[in-house]
Design a protein around this nucleic acid. Structure first.
Lengths: 146, 146
DNA sequence: GTATCAATTGAGATTGATAATCAATATCAA
DNA sequence: TTGATATTGATTATCAATCTCAATTGATAC
């Protein structure tokens, strides 16, 4: 039993919410994904094996996962909300290729430190941040040169 | 005559597009704004003096301004496209207060340099980036302490 | 196990932003 | 001034996000 089920169970108990078969199914499907899924992405995946689970439920459940700190909302510039795994994943930023849509996760300690530094200078208490760099990835650049 | 009118005129000429009274009006209104306006924000402002200008025109014209490099799209985390002035404004990032909604524009050369550095490391050719830090601003923190 | 009751569900409807359509109109080069 | 062409505004379409509500289900007490 992965840790996430435990987190969810605890969260539900604490909030007097219920563990339903749908929530189990959706959690399982979500944990299997590797990419940054949108509600519709995950709904399409789930529909294949569990055609009885509705769209609204997937939508609500992903929001629940976010509140339970199992999922994290990411905004990759298209206009849809996407979710990625949060538990066991450290904070990272994204390099997003505008040609192939691929993204690379990066973490740079120095940048994080600098961010803290100039927040302090502005009297600003940072809570979370988002950094995305759009450009062209190594593979696409190689393709272009051919 | 501000420089932006010239930029727009040149852009239109180059693309065989036309300078209309609506485009003048919308540009004038846009240049007067200081915040990051959404289509609806600007439409509401314009409607007061020019009730004949339609919503779709404001929408299309802001996109035109973006293409002409007069406006820049910003994404402040809500799900609407906002535009800020581009000409005469250098690149900057945003500190966004989650309490009062205010934002502070910041620029940190060091961070920009670091970004370039680790893009290079990843073989990634950066084109543009977006960095937003969400948190609590000085004023709101002061209020909280009272 | 069963009753109880609030939480949950799924279908469908709604909202809100964005974008396409199209007939009427305006612009501008010649 | 004119004709070719772009633009406009009203309307409609699209799509993700979100709400509604009656029917159902899970957790808890008995």
């Amino acid at each position: 039993m992965p840790k996430e089920v435990e987190i969810l169970t605890d969260f539900l108990k604490e909030k007097n919410l219920k563990l339903t078969s749908q929530r189990r199914t959706i959690l399982e499907a979500f944990l299997k994904t590797e990419k940054h899924v949108s509600v519709d992405d995950l709904y399409d995946i789930i529909r294949k094996n569990s055609p009885d689970i509705g769209h609204a439920t997937v939508f609500r459940t992903l929001r629940l996962f976010r509140n339970a700190d199992i999922a994290k909302e990411v905004d990759l510039g298209d206009k849809r909300t996407r979710y990625e795994h949060k538990y066991g994943h450290n904070h990272h930023d994204h390099l997003i290729c505008v040609q192939c849509g691929k993204f690379i996760e990066v973490l740079d300690e120095e940048i994080e430190k600098l961010q803290d530094k100039f927040c302090k200078r502005a009297g600003f208490l940072p809570q979370r941040h988002k950094m995305e760099i759009f450009g062209i990835c190594r593979q696409c650049r190689a393709k272009e040169k051919r």
